[in-house]
Design a protein around this nucleic acid. Structure first.
Lengths: 102, 102
DNA sequence: GTAAACTGGTTTGCATGACAAACTGGTTTG
DNA sequence: CAAACCAGTTTGTCATGCAAACCAGTTTAC
C-alpha cells in the first residue's frame, strides 16, 4: 500500500483518543460506563464526553442512559458498525506498517 | 498493550499526513524533492511546506536547498532520528493492533 | 522586450477540532 | 441545611491542519 491510499482514509478513528476508546470498548466485549472509560484511559470528563458524542453521532457506539439507585449512569457499547470500522482502520494501518517495513 | 499506553505516546507522527510523509521518505531510501512528495501524496503546497517545517524543526528530516540550473530545489531526507521515530511509532501501533485483534 | 504563464516554494488567515474549566442537576455526608 | 461529591454536559480557549494568497524568479508567447 502506497502512503497516498492511507492518506485518503477518512475515519473518526484517526484521532488517537477515539482509537483508544474504540479499542477499549471492543476489547471489553461488555458495555463500559463513563467512569470505567475515564480511569482506563485517564482523560478529563469533558474530553471523554465530547469524544463519546462524536462516536455516537457517527453510529460507532451506542449509549444507554439509566438510573442506578438514584444516580444517573451512562453505558457505552461498540455497535456492529463500530467494530467494523475499527477493523477497517486497523487493516489499513497493518498494511501501511507491512509495506513501510517491507 | 493497554490503550492507555498508546494514548501516552507523544509523537509528531500521530498526524496522518506526517506519518505518510515519513513512510514515503523512509521507503524511498533516497532523498525526495518537494515536487516528488507533492505528487506522491497529493497535498497542497502550503500543507506540505508546513508539515516539512515541523518535521525539520523536530529533527526528523533534513532539508537541503540548492539551485539546479537557475531554479531553486529543496530536497528532503529522513534523518536517523526520523527513521527511529517512525520505527518507534509503528512498533507501538503494531502492538495496539495485536492486542486489539487477538 | 514585455506580458502571461509556470516553477518552487513560504506566509497568512481561517475553520475545524481537541481539550479543560466551568457549569448543571442531583445525591450523600456531616 | 450546607458542604462535598457524583455523573456528566456545555462553554471558551488554544492548537493545528489546511488552502489561498503571496513572493521570487524563469520560461514561453507575442
Amino acid at each position: 500500500m502506497d502512503p497516498k491510499n492511507f492518506l485518503s482514509l477518512d475515519s473518526l478513528l484517526t484521532d488517537r483518543v477515539r482509537l483508544a476508546i474504540m479499542a477499549t470498548l471492543c476489547a471489553a466485549e461488555e458495555p463500559l460506563d463513563f467512569a470505567s472509560l475515564l480511569d482506563n484511559l485517564e482523560l478529563s470528563k469533558g474530553n471523554l464526553s465530547s469524544h463519546m458524542r462524536k462516536l455516537d453521532d457517527a453510529g460507532l457506539v451506542s449509549i444507554k442512559k439509566e438510573f442506578v439507585g438514584r444516580k444517573p449512569k451512562t453505558t457505552y457499547c461498540a455497535t456492529e458498525a463500530g467494530r467494523a470500522e475499527l477493523k477497517r482502520y486497523l487493516d489499513v494501518l497493518s498494511n501501511l506498517i507491512k509495506e513501510t517495513r517491507q
